[in-house]
Amino acid sequence: MPEIIRYPNKLGLIGWLGGGKWGVERYLYTLHRVTGLGILLYFLMHIFVTSSRAISEELWRSTMGFFDSTVFLIGEYLVFAAFAFHALNGLRLGLIELGFLTGPAEEPVYPYKSSLNVQRPFMIVMMIVAAAVIIVGGWDFFIAGH
């Protein structure tokens, strides 16, 4: 008997993004990853940059002087916004993944409601809080301090 040929049909990285017809939680999942990577990258640089305080006052002043420009301010603001989202969405995920926001198992009755419906009000609240923090942070970054 000839070997059965199968055509590989994995979605690959495109599958992480979903596309157009998926629920909002899938986009939050993608954004959580992207912001997490961004924060990690910043954090690794941050460790080295701020360690200049351990050497001397001059080095600290020159390092801070180097980063004192609009481009880095915008970059820092993006990290701040990423953190606000990642923290508040992470709080939601933590509560869901430890079973506090999924609701207990229940007999499925059509039209089906799932754990997605249980966590959704909390998700909306978290996203509103994140948006508020990002807006107030923007005011602090670009208006209040200048």
């Binding site: 998926w22 990853r33 993944e97 079973g99 999924t102 089906y112 799932s114 754990s115």
Partner: peptide, 25 residues
């Protein structure tokens, strides 16, 4: 990581995402 799609598409209302989170718990 709770993208939640499995539960959204399940034709029998099984809600696998809930099962997986309760399992982690």
């Amino acid at each position: 990581h709770y993208a939640g799609e499995c539960s959204a598409v399940c034709p029998k209302g099984v809600d696998p995402a809930r099962a997986i989170q309760l399992m982690k718990r």
